[in-house]
Design a protein around this nucleic acid. Structure first.
Lengths: 137, 137
DNA sequence: CAGCATCCTCTATGATACTG
DNA sequence: CAGTATCATAGAGGATGCTG
């Protein structure tokens, strides 16, 4: 079922499908699906930030979700956490090389979204306007 | 907060953050986060498939989730649904141009995952081995 | 064949309160 | 400042049975 002939690396080969080995795709797909991951990475792309700075930058985030998001990203090695042992403590988060690499990976998604936003919303509206019961169409 | 100087289009600018307009990124992020979306698109990348063919290709999927996934992708205009009005009916799903474009967008993620899987898992293991209470490190 | 309807569980997220 | 702890909820996902 894999596209094995002409296209070698440009084809979409999902990892996790029965005939594909697990390549860890689900991990990053899950991360991308989490509500605050991409925005957090984005903020840290600009410069390292402290906990409170992130909290203020990510409008509406709760402390719980901020901590969870940061911990998961740290666990995956996407960012590093630096604690300055002062009182009160100063904790700074910064992207690792891997985190920066991951962020670059996401940029095309943003671009594509921007390009396709309007037409996708048009498709959705058309779909929703569709007569309710019309199994033959 | 946006990176405005050297990097124009390669920077990760999240849409939805307070200082960024909504570019529809959350839609595709949500889709990517859904369990069967990418695998479904992947299967359809090879060739158009009928409902039962997809069901067999996507190991472990329930009819409920297959239908949900297909409907969402159809609504977004990523795939088209063709009904042959025979008895019993024959329904074929195929990628639209937009769906194909989206699939191409995902391919780099697969590649990146493959490349980074092992080192990410190493980071996770190291993180999990870390002493429980050690707020100063 | 290609679904839809129903019930159930589990996880992501959120609200709120407390602390070294 | 930078968290942790507890409680609550909505939606994703799954199990099962039925149908044009």
């Amino acid at each position: 079922m894999s596209a094995t002939n002409t296209d070698v690396s440009s084809a979409l080969e999902p990892c996790g499908a029965p005939d594909h080995e697990d390549c860890g795709l689900s991990l990053i797909l899950n991360r991308l699906g989490e509500k605050w991951t991409v925005m957090t990475l984005s903020e840290l792309t600009v410069r390292p930030l402290r906990y409170r700075e992130l909290e203020r930058a990510l409008d509406g985030i709760t402390q719980r979700m901020l901590t969870l998001t940061l911990r998961r990203l740290e666990r995956d090695g996407f960012l590093s956490r630096h604690v300055e042992p002062t009182v009160p403590p100063a904790v700074t988060y910064s992207l690792t090389e891997r985190g920066r690499s991951f962020a670059e990976l996401i940029a095309p998604l943003v671009h594509w979204s921007r390009l396709n936003k309007n037409s996708i919303e048009a498709s959705q509206a058309a779909f929703d306007r569709r007569p309710a019961a019309m199994p033959w169409y």
